[in-house]
Design a protein around this nucleic acid. Sequence first.
RNA 1: CGGGGUGUAGCGCAGCCCGGUAGCGCGCUUCGUUCGGGACGAAGAGGCCGUAGGUUCGAAUCCUAUCACCCCGACCA
Length: 509
Amino acid sequence: MQSNFEFLILYKYYTKNMAKDLVTRDEDYSQWYNDIVIKADLAEYSAVRGCMVIKPYGYAIWEMMQAALDKMFKDTGHVNAYFPLFIPKSFFSKEAKHVEGFAKECAVVTHYRLKTDESGKGIVVDPDAKLEEELIVRPTSETIIWDTYRKWVQSWRDLPILVNQWANVVRWEMRTRLFLRTAEFLWQEGHTAHATRKEAEAEAIKMLGVYTTFAQNFMAMPVLQGVKSENERFAGAIETYCIEALMQDGKALQAGTSHFLGQNFAKAFDVKFLSKENKQEYVWATSWGVSTRLMGALVMTHSDDNGLVIPPKLAPYQVVIVPIYKSDEEFETVVGKGREIKAQLERYGIRVKLDDRDTQKPGYKFAEWEYKGVPLRIAIGPRDIQNQTVELARRDNLTKSVTSINDLEKTIIDLLDDIQNNLYNKALTHREANITEVNSWEEFKSVLENKGGFIKAHWDGTSETEEKIKDETKATIRLIPLDYNQSTPGQCVYSGNPSKGLVVFAKSY
RNA sequence: CGGGGUGUAGCGCAGCCCGGUAGCGCGCUUCGUUCGGGACGAAGAGGCCGUAGGUUCGAAUCCUAUCACCCCGACCA
């Protein structure tokens, strides 16, 4: 972008009274988050407690995420399938840890029919239509999938199974927040079956890598990779790998998980195969998922007090063109030019919205697209037509410039690239500035209280200590770094007992 | 499930303490002037005040019950 951009006038643009409908992050971070989700038209509350409506603009971003992830799954050999929403209750009790983990938040279907009540006014559950076996609305699909895989697997030749599904799941959460925790959410869940432990472990790590790449390259969100402690592990897993991102308020957000399930589900559902050595063996498993929670992560990683900021690679519209005109003739000229530019940019694969609504003023449109987070805005008016220029405004750093219409696509491509990188670097700088290594319990509490962020500290490896730290400070072990076993030993920051290495603590969403 | 709060026009709120049949801002409709950072003027439309009982000549307002949602905690992605 340098060559094309040097001669341009850059200036911070008018910010007074912008975003007048948003609370600032400093005033009330939670409120700020909710305001953005609503104002940017990503989602709204529904008539159902804990459930939200994902609106077209929000869903478009989710579709961008889906498309990128789905391609990465396909590129690593996975295929999509679909399993039922309902799971027989009995399936759930087959894996002890799994039931224990999910029992408290399951929606249960008990009847299959309604009827009008005695008075004829209302409608009631028909007591005669009670299900023989109650059905659970899936909180995750391991059980129904492993019950199915039993039929799919007989020989080592049937392995591996590399299946993903895009689905909705329900977890009856006590407290919900738009995108971050809703009773129903959308996600993908990969479920793989392998002949060997080694292969399954490699798969779990591979998908963690896919999530990491996605977070960094598409969401422009740096993440830490690691392993969950026993307390935080997925119900039924041997090992849970995760990526953790740091939000602007210093709290951590789990952005994706990948589980090595060992043979737990194979044993629970009797999924065996005949090996090359003609021996019956249990299958090795993984599962991995990311959800619409990533939408929340996206909002809280990049957005500012003026609204949403979307990284170009996930923006439904990367560029919005706002025509400026007075008369009908000017409208024709300016919008005509807008259409030309739109077509020209689209030839290069750029996603462009021409906002030719005659019902809103330019200023209104500027504000609207700003809080909707469109990375680049092009304004074209009569002056630009005359000078063969356009006005460009960047959402990430709120600068405006006037640029020649010549080679506009090159300017735009370079700028989008620059915005994507800038957003990542800004988030990375924030993350790096908020990882603190501490050596004493006093320091731990003080950093957590005054600074927040990720805290690296020695831990004695026991659940008891982890529990106590959580009780006293609300901070949990977000992850144990992947290279933990090669790290230098020390003393647990809480108990003083020997520690194998540093782990990462934080308060989390 | 505990603690707190809120239900009044599409959205945000006032009115309630001290009962007399509902108001403000934004938005919406029409017309005119505007249009390079959320336009202006004029004229309009829109609510049986969450629900159900009760007190009263009369209830948005007082009493009782109930439902829903939001926020803060305990559980979770």
